[in-house]
């Protein structure tokens, strides 16, 4: 009899795991709480480091699903072990599975928590995700009033490496996202002034450093220093205060749009599912790996596997790799 695998989460991790398990001949059920597949990537316009359209990645993943049964708008409430398998209760119906993969991803850091930056209060303070939406809709950033912005500031590490909001870890992808978005703004509005306020630039992946150099050559100004606060001034513009730590001077600047590079936060709903299944949560709030080096996708509970950003901030490449590894783990487990 064909064995069934339940995958929770229809983002990159879930789609890739489903694709692999499908081609290995398993019956795959993919649970997605929203009405679209592709997770956060589906809401993105273009991707670093090569500015490829995100929709290409999402459609390549969704088109290769084969016989995967995808259940969108289906929220998983609980997963219980029964006999040799699991019972997944979702949207008031029960589903049986022989193995479970948690690919629930992350949530963007709720920027309202960093109240001093004014997100949700000042109309021209937006997040990196909001900017992607603008690129999708208008191909360029637009002020709330509809005016063309002249000066734009990117604020790195919002909800990352910040103990004051209980997020002490690095979210890995925001530095290069800011660099990518800064270049895109420069390309869309060549006369605009673009500033990046950073602590360190962590451009760790292939092509990332080149992107950083490209931004510099295109005139993006990088200022080492964290934003302290912002306030709204005439015309909905934003006055930001920071310290230029290389020049050792406090700095005030009025800008048209502030873009907050929001980090990746653990999902509270995931943590409930995970702890109910006997999985442990690490100090940052993500699902803890059994062995960080040799078994990053396994868990302490037989038949339960993890993939992608529910284990910590990840880019698409690493998430796809993790998903492939998870699929192999599931296969080994089910063919014991």
């Amino acid at each position: 009899m064909t064995k069934t695998v339940a995958i929770i989460g229809g983002g990159v991790a879930g789609l890739e795991t489903a694709k692999q398990l499908n081609s290995l001949g398993y019956s795959v059920k993919l649970f997605e709480k929203t009405n679209t597949l592709g997770g956060h990537v589906a809401k993105w316009d273009r991707l670093f480091p090569n500015k490829r359209h995100a929709s290409e990645v999402v459609s390549s993943l969704t088109l290769s699903q084969g016989n995967t049964q995808t259940l969108t708008e289906t929220t998983v409430h609980s997963i219980k072990r029964e006999n040799q398998g699991f019972v997944i209760s979702a949207n008031s119906s029960n589903h049986e599975a022989d193995a479970v993969v948690l690919a629930t991803g992350f949530e963007l850091f709720p920027a309202e928590k960093k109240e001093e930056y004014g997100y949700g209060l000042f109309e021209n303070v937006i997040t990196s995700a909001d900017l992607e939406q603008m690129f999708k809709k208008h191909g360029k950033p637009v002020m709330a009033s509809g005016h063309k912005p002249v000066r734009i500031a990117f604020i790195h590490c919002v909800g990352s490496r910040d103990e004051k909001v209980n997020r002490p870890y690095c979210s890995k992808v925001c530095c290069v996202t800011a660099v990518k978005q800064a270049i895109e703004v420069k390309e869309a509005l060549p006369n605009s002034e673009v500033f990046c306020f950073y602590m360190d630039l962590r451009t760790f992946g292939p092509g990332y450093e080149d992107l950083y150099k490209e931004a510099q050559s295109k005139g993006v100004t990088f200022i080492r220093g964290r934003l302290s606060e912002s306030s709204e001034i005439e015309g909905g513009r934003v006055l930001i205060k920071a310290e230029d730590t290389l020049a050792s001077t406090p700095l005030k600047m009025s800008v048209d749009i502030v873009v907050l590079m929001v980090g990746m936060s653990p999902l509270r709903s995931t943590n409930k599912l995970a702890t109910d299944l006997g999985l442990s949560i690490n100090a940052d709030g993500f699902i803890a790996a059994t062995d960080l080096h040799t078994n990053p996708t396994g868990t302490a509970t037989n038949g339960v596997f993890v993939a992608g950003a529910c284990t910590g901030p990840n880019n698409i490449t690493d998430t796809v790799n993790a998903a492939k590894a998870t699929a192999l783990d599931v296969h080994n487990y089910l063919s014991r």
Binding site: E115, E116, G118, G120, L121, F122, E229, S230, S231, E232
Partner: peptide, 9 residues
């Protein structure tokens, strides 16, 4: 108050 603009507002 500068760090909690919504309270001031």
């Amino acid at each position: 108050g500068q760090l909690t603009p919504s309270v001031t507002k």
